[in-house]
Write a protein that binds this DNA or RNA. Structure first.
Length: 277
DNA sequence: GTCCCGTCAG
DNA sequence: CTGACGGGAC
């Protein structure tokens, strides 16, 4: 298994050298830039994330620039990315970072809202050059398939030091992502183009998340509600219901949830507003 | 229809 | 551990 692991890594890195996707932030090690990019790219294709990243880093070159603007402004810029709670958590995080700085928070970045195990490791690897694996869905899928293991986490825990030995973690982590996106794809992997094909276990049992229906979902309604509030300002529930042609009960339900998520608020005049304005 | 560098609450 | 959580491009 050790020999196989070493070979796997070498082939993967060699493939990456000639097939990497070029993005400006890949040569960047500023923690704030890395943080922004990582939050924006959660559950989002890189080409799209890249465009938004450029916009955000230009508008908010430092955490303080975001911390001192309005949430509404951040949400407007976020429009089109989806999962608006990410924007909210990013906004809240910017205030914490503006106060304490990444170096003060190091290495426990999970104390920032919206930062979990993946993003923490991404910051550690890309901004602090730490020897950690960014264990995202691509890494898990590739490891599972190639080594024929049901539980890739266990494998990674066991072999991460071997994978990272004499290796720049940043290159390795990014190699996983590009390889997973263009060769070892979730549904239709391009095994015939794969440089690891002859030694791969081709274990395809690792589950991929089923795609949730969007049309007609609460997610769609929530998205439309945010869009409406950004455009027209604060509105009465009745008005929203008419504008969105929404079912009363369902609208109340998502309003409740969105207040809990801290995205909207019912102000004293009983108007729904983006929160914090 | 399919896809996308996760996180959080319950 | 499971389900909720966007939205544009192809």
């Amino acid at each position: 298994m050790e020999v196989k692991t070493k070979n796997f890594k070498n082939v993967l890195l060699h493939w990456y050298k000639y097939n990497k996707r070029e993005y400006a932030w890949r040569n960047n090690s500023d923690p704030w830039s890395i943080y922004l990019l990582e939050v924006i790219s959660q559950q989002t294709q890189l080409d799209r994330a890249d465009k938004y990243f450029k916009k955000f880093i230009k508008e908010f070159p430092t955490p303080n620039d975001m911390a001192t603007t309005s949430f509404k402004k951040v949400l407007k810029m976020w429009s089109g990315l989806g999962y608006n709670s990410r924007a909210k958590r990013m906004f809240e995080s910017s205030k914490i970072i503006a106060e304490k700085s990444f170096d003060d928070l190091y290495p426990d970045f999970q104390q920032l809202p919206g930062v979990g195990p993946y993003t923490e490791n991404a910051i550690l690897s890309f901004a602090y050059n730490e020897q950690v694996i960014t264990e995202d869905i691509n890494v898990k899928r590739i490891i599972s398939r190639y080594f024929g293991v049901e539980n890739p986490k266990k494998y990674i825990d066991h072999f991460s030091s071997l994978l990272l030995k004499n290796t720049n973690s940043r290159n390795l982590n990014q190699a996983f992502m590009d390889f997973g996106s263009s060769i070892c794809k979730p549904r239709s992997p391009l095994c015939s183009d794969c440089p690891l094909e002859n030694t791969c276990e081709k274990y395809f049992n690792y589950e991929t998340k089923p795609i949730e229906k969007f049309s007609g979902s609460n997610r769609e309604l929530r998205g439309n509600l945010i869009k409406l509030l950004l455009k027209k300002g604060n509105l009465k529930v009745n008005t929203i219901q008419q504008e969105l042609d929404a079912d009363q009960d369902r609208l109340n339900e998502i309003l409740k949830k969105m207040q809990k998520d801290g995205l909207v608020k019912l102000n004293t005049n009983n108007l729904v507003e983006i929160y914090p304005g």
